[in-house]
Each structure stands twice: as C-alpha cells, then as structure tokens.
Amino acid sequence: MFDWLQDLSDWLIYSVFTIAQSSKLGDALHFFVYDTIKILILLFLITTVMGIVNSYFPVDKIRNYLSRNKLFGLEYLFASTFGAITPFCSCSSVPLFIGFVKGGIPLGVTFAFLITSPLVNEVAIALFIGMFGLKATLIYVSSGIILGMFGGFILGKLKLEKYLSPWVQGVLANASKEDDLEEEKQTFSQRLPFIFKEALSIIKGVFWYIIIGIGIGAMMHGFIPTGFFENYISKDNPFAVPIAVILGVPMYSNAAGVLPIIQVFVQKGIPIGTAIAFMMAVVGLSIPEATMLKKVMTWKLIAIFFGVVAFFIILSGYMFNLIL
C-alpha cells in the first residue's frame, strides 16, 4: 500500500537533497519523511471512519443504552468497547464519569469505559497500523478492550462507592434511568462535512506531537545502534515489564507523541510487549488524569483504580511478549 511512498522518500532524500544513502543523516531523514506522510494519511482515514461510527453512536446514546438494558455481565464488554470507539479527550473524562453515575450505570461498568477510552482511540489505532502492522493493531485493540473489561469488573466487585467524593455520592443516590434522546435525523451526506471537520481538528490537535515524536524517533533511528537498549533492558529480565509500567505511569503524553518513540525502541531491541506496556502506562495513567479524577474521587479510590489498571497493563505486557 505504501510502496509509492517508499519510492517518493528515496527520491526526495537521496536524489533531491543528495544525501548519501547509507549515512546516518540519510537514514534519519528518510525515516522522518516516510513515517510522517504515512501516519498522516492513516490518521485521516481512521479518524474519518471513527467519525462516521461516532456520528451514529454518540456517547449520550451509549450511556442511555447501558443505563436501560440488563445485559447480564456483557455490560462490561460493551462499556469497554464503547470506550474504544469514542474519541478521548482528557477534559471530558470527569463529565463523562458523572454522567454515567447519574444514569445509574454501575461504578465498575463506568470504570471499564474510563480505562479503555484513553488506551484505544482513533489516533492510537492509526499510528499502530502505520508502525506495527494490522496483526499487532488487532491484538493491541482487543487486549485494550479486555483490559478495560476485567479492570472494570474487578473494580466493580470491590464496592468502592464509599470512596467517591461526597457530592458524587449524592449524585449516585439520585441516579435515575435516562429519558429518550431526540434522535438527530440527518442523512449521511449531511453528516459528512461535519465528520471531515472533526477529523481534521483531531489531526490538527495531535499534529505537533506526531512531528516531534517522529522527529525524536527518526534521530534515534539513525543514530542509535540496533540492539543498544538490550544492554539495559535485557529480553530475559523478568522485571522489565513492571519496571517499564512504573516508569510510565507518572509520565504523560498522548498516543501520538509516544508511539513513534516506542517504534524505535522496538526496532532497537526492546521486546514489543514491554514497549506497549510502557506506552499504555504513559497514555492511560498519568498525574494530570489523577488530579482531574480528584474532583470526583478520593485519593484512596484513585490509588486503587491506578493499581488495578497498572496490574492489568503489566499482565498484558507479558502476554504481548509471549504471543508477538
């Protein structure tokens, strides 16, 4: 699919800029041009597809569906999957959380949504396809959804309602089933301009992260020798995954900034499971998110939430290392 782009980057770097083909600079620049264009194309495709899905399944509809239907345990799977298809904006996580609680959706199901939402989203998927291929993407998406499902289920079993902020407990006591929504009746062609506009605004929002991420990745690609990291994080070190997760939790970046760097880690010898566990910890759990959640939860609940999610991220890291 991207052969033409390979040729284009070859031509641009080696013929137009006349940089020697095997030089470090040539390697780095080629990587940068090729990856940036490929990622931007994929990003546009995926955000548009996700935009179409979202236009027909807005988050309000999802909430009402979860609030009204008895799903016999499947609600965790649904909430987690919905979390994957809705676009993630960290500033929306608190209103979303309260909105779900208000609609009478159990806390564990709400957590399932909240765990998957930042882990699996259109930006992460586009970058993942571009960098690791379809198979790895499918495994990533399904393990993200499974992780949200189990994490939510366990958190639900722990009876954590008493650790919510007092005003949220008030909301919980007055929770009620949601009323019907006014359905927006628009044809596909009426929706499309808005979907494109949204897709472009998502790309605009992550554009510089991607450029900087790929820039750093390109430099590492050109200048760090293959196998370099293995000296520090050996493949056989059984603690590599938990160490990567513990390092990743306090850091914060979105998928767009961290994935290009992760790709280079993997090329230079870090096992993919360890790298992905690190990325999940960076993207899914962070200090800014904790401070945001402080508005609705006590520190104790935040600590339990982070602990359970980190545990499952470590598990999936080991799993990735085994199967990929």
Partner: peptide, 13 residues
C-alpha cells in the same frame, strides 16, 4: 465548576 456543569446533564465538554 464541575458540580455546576453537571447540573446541565451533559457528557462532554
């Protein structure tokens, strides 16, 4: 203020 915001019953800001 998040409490005031939530009185309008919205899910996304």
């Amino acid at each position: 203020d998040i409490q005031q915001i939530m009185e309008y019953n919205i899910l996304s800001t």
